[in-house]
Structure formats: structure tokens, C-alpha cells
Computed example of a mutant assay.
Amino acid sequence: MSVTTTDGVLALVRPDLRDFAGYSSARSEGGDGRIWLNANESAWDNDASPDSGLRRYPEPQPAALRQALADMYGVAAAQLLVGRGSDEGIDLLIRALCRPGDDAVLVTSPTFGMYAVCARLHGTRVVDVPLTDTDDGFECDFDAVATTAEKEDARIVFLCSPGNPSGTLLPRDAIRRLARRLHGRALVVVDEAYVEYAQAPSVANLIEAHDNIAVLRTLSKAHALAAARIGSVLAHEALIGVLRRCQAPYPVPAPSAQTALAAISRTARNSTVGHVQAGVDERKSLYAALRGLAGVRRVYPSRANFLLVRTADTERVYRRLLAAGVVVRDMRGHAALGDALRISIGTPEQNACVLAVLREVLGELADARSVAPVQGDNA
């Protein structure tokens, strides 16, 4: 059934999509049918995977997984959309709310690049209110964000918390105040891909009181299912309904859904909690060790599973790490991060390898400076 009301969050949806019915897949029809002959599937299994069920299209929104994720995230199942990682959620939100060539989204750089990529692919303007680099790390100027969003008619404000690559956890009350100020004007999307490592509460429970807040969650990070591509959008159920109609018919492969269900069982989640704590402990140890190295200009405090690091010779450090088989993220393409690398937190052995390489290369740089010839009359 189409939705025609423009009350609340639906007023932010593109007018031409408010009555959009989307594609009605064959799997969404038929109820408890016994003989399924409506989707043009093969009548025989593939010999490589007999009795796997893979010849059938999967549920568009796997009910058991959707309910399990909703329970884990503390929302109603009707407030959750399962998709192909957070990337699909970002893309769907932009497509549903932003008119190509007309509307804008707001980002706070340095931040996750897919917000801008999806917007530009959709023909949507990207407005940037950069984070402020302070002695305590990167901070968000929420007043500037709100003012700019109003001035530029931004339809969506993307906030990453903890930020990627900043590692900054945004204040809950500031997010709530921003949503209140922009109510009826913009959707505030909080990307919580790394929130488990912050060991802090989600802002998802603000959705009930603020229908212009949406939250992105993923199983790719703390739950170690990056290859399964399972992400969720948490939002007011009216907006979830719109996103479902904009989504591809079968976004979640059955094997991924089955793996995800097992990965968020109570037993598996207890194990995940232990892995997260180990990651947090390693983050603290690596942070302290990096701060003690000569040639490391700055290590930013982080509430995620990575550290943002500035060094005296980032090109040389990056190349030496690669030569040692250690691949880190080069952040120098960001305007404000011309000397920075992002280092994911690994196992104790992996982190020790990173430190060994850094000690060697930075030690060489220090030695080179100490023996540099003095420039004088006879130089």
C-alpha cells in the first residue's frame, strides 16, 4: 500500500517517491505455498550444492535475522532494514531523500568517503563542515553544522560516531539537539560502524522521540563479518517502509543471513564482547607506545578499532611498512591529513610488528638528522 501522508519524516522523502510502490518480488507473494512456480527458478539443484536451498531466491528481508538484529540493537523490527553493509543504507537514504541536481547532503571531513561518493553518483551536492582539530582530538562544531544545513538546504546530515578516521565519539546530547533543530528540514544519520569499540550506548533509542534520526549499524567490524555484507538502517518505521520500496528485490543472500544469525547468537556475542575488549586493550597499548616514539608527531585519541597517526616522514614510513608486509591506510589524500596514516588495531603480534618497523625507520630518521653536516663557510 502506498504512503501519501507528508507528516513527520515522510516530508523529507522525495515527493516523487512518496507514492512509489517499488518492485514486488515473487518471493514476497505466495504466503505458505507448497509448490513454488512463480519466480522462474530452476526446478533442480546445482550439482555442486545439492539440497542447499540456493536455487530459491532468498527472503527480501529475512524475518529471523531482522528480528534478531532489532533485539540486539534495541529497536522494533519495523524500525530496521537489513541490507548489503552500511554502504547500501547510505545509498538508499540519499536516493530516497535527495532529488538529483537539487538537494544536498552535509558531511564533516575527514570522514567516511562513501557519503560523498554516493551523493555524487546520485547528482547530489556535498556540503562540508570540517571537524576542528583540537588538543583533545577532532571535534564537531554542531552549531556550524546546523547553520550550514539550514543555509544550504541539506536534506541529510551524515555524522560518523566514532568517526572514521578521526576516532571521535560524538556527544549524544549534541546529536539530539541537532535533530531537534533540524526537525522537518533534514535527516540526521549517525553511522555507528565502530560503536562497539567505544563501549558506549547507541543513539538508536533517540529514534522514538526524533523521527529525523537514522542510525547505521554493521556486522562488518566488531562481529567480524566483513565478507558477509550485513548492515542495517535503524529509523522511524515510515522511513524504513520507503527504503524497502527503493531497495533491490533480494539484497541479502541466504548464506549471509544464516551466517549472521549464528554470529549474533548469545554464545557468539559473548565471544565478540571478549574480542572487542581485547581490541580496546591493544588500542590503548599501541596508543601509548606510538606516543613514545621520536618522529611520531601525533597520535589521536580513538574510540574505534584504529589509530590516526601523523609522522615526520609519512611517505618513508608507509613504504617501509609495505615492504615489511604491513598494509595500513594512507590518509594523505585528505586535505587536513597530509602526513597521516590510519592503523587498524591488530593482534598483539601484528601490533608488535608495526612498532618494530616504526622504531627502525623513525630511528634512522633521527640518526640522519643528528649527523647532518653544519652548513658554514666551507660547506
Results as ranks from 00 to 15, higher is better:
165 P>Y: 08
135 D>S: 12
40 N>I: 06
24 S>N: 08
259 T>L: 15
284 K>D: 02
12 L>H: 06
270 N>W: 05
259 T>N: 10
4 T>A: 06
78 A>K: 15
61 Q>M: 14
313 D>C: 08
316 R>Y: 04
255 P>H: 09
361 V>R: 07
358 L>C: 07
51 D>F: 15
169 L>W: 08
162 P>T: 02
69 L>P: 07
151 K>L: 13
335 A>E: 06
320 R>I: 00
198 A>W: 10
32 D>I: 12
273 V>N: 03
109 S>P: 15
54 L>C: 08
196 E>L: 11
24 S>F: 07
105 V>F: 05
266 R>N: 04
234 L>F: 04
291 R>G: 04
291 R>K: 14
233 V>H: 02
152 E>K: 09
53 G>Y: 14
72 M>W: 14
343 I>N: 02
37 L>V: 13
293 L>E: 03
373 P>K: 14
22 G>W: 10
38 N>L: 09
41 E>M: 13
290 L>N: 04
38 N>E: 02
269 R>H: 01
249 P>Q: 02
261 L>A: 04
149 A>S: 11
303 R>N: 03
184 G>F: 04
137 G>I: 10
351 N>E: 00
163 G>R: 12
156 I>C: 00
58 P>R: 05
100 P>W: 07
124 T>M: 00
155 R>K: 15
210 H>D: 02
291 R>L: 02
90 I>R: 07
293 L>K: 11
178 L>E: 01
226 A>C: 00
5 T>Q: 09
301 P>Y: 02
361 V>G: 01
6 T>N: 14
328 V>W: 08
1 M>Q: 07
207 I>P: 04
152 E>I: 08
40 N>Q: 14
340 A>V: 04
76 A>Y: 06
291 R>I: 00
21 A>K: 14
184 G>S: 10
319 R>Q: 13
317 V>D: 00
30 G>P: 14
238 A>Y: 05
289 A>C: 05
221 K>I: 01
199 Q>A: 13
174 A>K: 15
22 G>R: 12
255 P>Q: 07
240 I>E: 01
315 E>K: 15
322 L>E: 08
42 S>K: 13
270 N>E: 09
20 F>C: 03
148 T>N: 04
299 V>H: 10
296 V>F: 07
263 A>F: 11
316 R>T: 08
73 Y>P: 01
215 V>P: 09
302 S>M: 10
304 A>D: 01
357 V>A: 01
167 G>A: 05
228 A>P: 00
339 D>T: 11
185 R>D: 00
39 A>T: 12
58 P>N: 05
212 N>C: 10
321 L>I: 06
114 M>N: 10
327 V>E: 09
357 V>F: 12
92 L>S: 01
175 I>D: 02
66 R>S: 10
14 R>C: 02
72 M>A: 13
238 A>P: 02
277 Q>A: 07
106 L>Q: 05
341 L>I: 12
189 V>K: 10
150 E>I: 15
6 T>F: 06
237 E>C: 06
298 R>A: 01
198 A>T: 02
255 P>V: 06
200 A>Y: 13
26 A>I: 08
